[in-house]
Design a protein around this nucleic acid. Sequence first.
DNA 1: CCTGAGAAGTTTTTT
DNA 2: ACTTCTCAGG
Length: 888
Amino acid sequence: MSKGFDDIPFFDEEPAPRKPAPAAGGIAARAMAARDKAKRPDYLSGLNPEQTEAVETLEGPVLVLAGAGTGKTRVLTTRIAHILSTGRAFPSQILAVTFTNKAAREMKERIGVLVGHAVEGMPWLGTFHSIGVKLLRRHAELVGLRSDFTILDTDDVVRLIKQLIQAEGLDDKRWPAKQFAGMIDTWKNKGLDPSQIPEGDARAFANGKGRELYAAYQNRLLTLNACDFGDLLLHPIRMFRANPDVLREYHDKFRYILVDEYQDTNTAQYMWLRLLAQRPRAKTEAKAAAPGEARASRSWPDDVSSAPAERSRASGDSVSANHRAEARRGQAAVAPDGAPPRSEPRSGDSVSANRHQQINICCVGDDDQSIYGWRGAEVDNILRFEKDFPGAKVIKLERNYRSTEHILGAAAHLIAHNEGRLGKTLFTERTNPDDEKVHVHAAWDSEEEARAIGEEIEQLQRQKHNLNDIAILVRASFQMREFEDRFVTLGLNYRVIGGPRFYERLEIRDAMAYFRLVCQPADDLAFERIVNTPKRGLGDTTVRTLHDYARARDIPMFAAASDIIETDELKPKARKALFDVVTDFRRWQTLLETTPHTELAEQILDESGYTAMWQADKSAEAPGRLENLRELIRSMEAFESLRGFLEHVALVMDAEQNEDMDAVSIMTLHSAKGLEFDTVFLPGWEEGLFPHQRALDEGGRAGLEEERRLAYVGITRAKRRCHIWFVSNRRIHGLWQSTMPSRFLDELPIDHVEVAEQDVSYGGYGRGGYGQSRFDKADPFENSYQTPGWKRAQQHRSEATRDNWGTRSGHAVERIGYGESGPRTRMIEGELVAKSTTSEPSRFNIGDRVFHLKFGNGNIAAIEGNKLTIDFDRAGQKRVLDGFVERV
DNA sequence: CCTGAGAAGTTTTTT
DNA sequence: ACTTCTCAGG
């Protein structure tokens, strides 16, 4: 069943260990064992009792609930080091899954540091997806693929779906491919085949053809010998269910399973994990080989036994080639610290003993940091761990090593407003009277917010703080721009983390399509992408002809092209052009084996005319694109072959950043998870933005709680200083809106919060010809809240909220001036923003003399709904919302 | 084939 | 309000 197991060249198992093993029971081994007993290994020192327990509880299921900053990664890596150095397993017998490549990389590095060089990497440490790819490359034929299948990214997927929608004769305007791609993704996150999707979902798209379309999509992928990201999880699941013998090999193989960020697992990942982590019960196993078995496990997870039970017998029949190979290596193996790998099979006898070995799963996570519900993560997975794995040991890590007590106190009080938590309380023993409280600041608008934060950062810079220790964490990426603009004018270094990816750029994707087609002539998506890029006179008509020709014969388009140029089906001009393309690719394909890949890549881009195309392009971005192409070639150097590079890009999609520069980090709260900074700025704490209106609309109470967890994540990123900001006016989609401070501000504990009073250094805001700013006044926070817009916001709120939330009111921000409105309800869909677009007749008349806080006095020149055009005495003509001016 | 007008969509993001 | 993409018409 698992043929091809050993002859796929892409991945090597661990290299053979170097040192010979001391004879079992020999003097040296006994001495070492004694030494191990007497002396705790270095890597265990410095762990607190809970961490130690999490590291040393190696048998049975373990759930580690690790609050923010409690040493989660340290526990994981130390646990692995412990398993390895006590010889309980080889690196290749440990399955360790993370969500991001970054986390996987970090873990590898840290394990390397702990155990030294003796461990040459861990072949099964990686993201769910990269491990999925590895499994699939080995067993591709079991799910109807070839092992050289391509991995499609979202862009490819959307284009493919668009083709399918058109092929169905549907209007691709009415039924956007992108939307359907999203639906498929959601289904796949839940582990659903086309046959399993809810009827409602199936009907919701394409005149009820949702299900057919999904099925057609899956078929097309198989024809293309391709996978989307979801398939990287689902195919292995299918494969394991249909082939219990293959699954058994992996049960035997993986003694220890570790999962990072368990709160982020979606249903598919959960299914995947349970398949690998739970051996079937003895009873089930007896009929495991029966064909019906795969079917029987369909309704899983509900009917699967929860206990990772031991097997009743060793069925010596299926020790795989791989397993034997591993056992062979075991003969000569030495664990990193020199101790013999005790439980490694050394004889036929211990091989069968091994078959009784239980699989030890350890999941690490924090329910309070679950912020990916919107993309299918199921917090529930972590909440029901004990049910899934009876007898599980649950260890809470609550001792925080990162933040001051004020920061922790603020975060804890905030998150306590969530229900349905497992309930942890972080604490720290480091208290220092000098520690700053969490600061809450108000600003007039987002521009001022950016300016003030910019100044504060310059202040820190003058105090010799590293910019690298400072971060601005925003809720939505559009907030970043204002900071970037400001920092550019200030000349302050910054780096934006996240954002558009290198490998998603047009020119990079084009170049990659060339490379893909060279390596993989059946890659139709790549073919279509570049067949006429640069322009070769192979327009729609030619491509359609090719497409039809290929479909009719069920061959790839490249093959169709090769055929069709032998016929006279095309016009001479197109035929010649196509002939050239085909000959080019054939030539490059032959060079693949002989020419160094970077050289070949360059050659491809040059000879295809792709480079020339951008050189001829006179647009502003052309030079940048050329630079990116050079960068692409450069980044290939680190890889052995074009194929290896393609694989890496498909999975990683990320190019690393320049870490050398001292710069402020700007990123979203989501991408900040797992990071820490001395000083953290959290701008934009306003209703509607944070919590985000859409999260509330679509997620209801759960949505609100997830937003609150996001706030929690934000605050807990800070080690020493945390500055929260909100503004009264923000431009959203071009419209200025008055905003209300976030309800999360009310949920901060007054004891740990300090509301910023007037700060001399802010005195300059709003001057520069605009007349008076709020900050020019004695109480900077008082007057802004007396504007009509503000008052209206107040009114809206008190109407909407007057009642029942007796818990507490927001004294934290009381001094800012809106505390008098009293307790608020915990409304989810309240009137959150004083809507500036009303259709009521204006309160103003043309010619009225008015005052605006920012622009000063002026006369109304025109009225358009609630928008006023005003000739200001000092600031000139401006359009403003009527909420922001007062008659004088 | 190129260009410009019009439409649509603007939470969070990995793989 | 702004950007980005699509498509129609030159």
